[in-house]
């Protein structure tokens, strides 16, 4: 069970997210695609820090510094998740506002600003 599986998983998650953003017409589906992409990226970050055969980097009596996984990516992912949440929340408020004004969520129609 080499490390490649995790990388493969992360990258495929990112691509699925990208696919959703590129193809789907409904705005909410695009936002869902965005968050999928963010989770994929977080998974990639985690898998980089993973050292086979070691446990989570929570220091308790059984777990010492040299039998825990590299903690830094874990910390990074924490902030990345928070940021992801903030962006998605803001995006949803904007989507609600759009729906109230234009009564539609279809990307094709939301094209007032152009040219």
């Amino acid at each position: 069970m080499s490390i490649g599986v995790y990388y493969f998983g992360a990258v495929s998650l990112i691509l699925i997210g990208l696919y959703a953003v590129l193809v789907k017409k409904n705005l909410l589906k695009i936002l869902v695609g965005l968050s999928i992409m963010e989770t994929g990226v977080n998974l990639l970050l985690i898998s980089i820090g993973y050292i086979a055969g070691r446990s989570a980097p929570i220091l308790s009596e059984g777990v010492g510094p040299n039998n825990a996984v590299d903690p830094i990516p874990q910390a990074l992912v924490l902030t990345a998740i928070v940021i992801g949440v903030a962006t998605t929340a803001l995006a949803l408020t904007v989507a609600i506002n759009l729906y109230e004004t234009y009564k539609t969520l279809n990307i094709e129609e939301l094209r007032r600003l152009r040219g």
């Binding site: 990208l18 953003v21 590129l22 695009i30 939301l110 094209r111 600003l113 152009r114 040219g115």
Partner: peptide, 18 residues
């Protein structure tokens, strides 16, 4: 040029990124 490139559709812009 302007009409086609900046056509206001987010999807098109996303395609540029892709």
């Amino acid at each position: 040029l302007r009409h086609y490139i900046y056509n206001g559709n987010v999807q098109a812009y996303a395609w540029y990124l892709a």
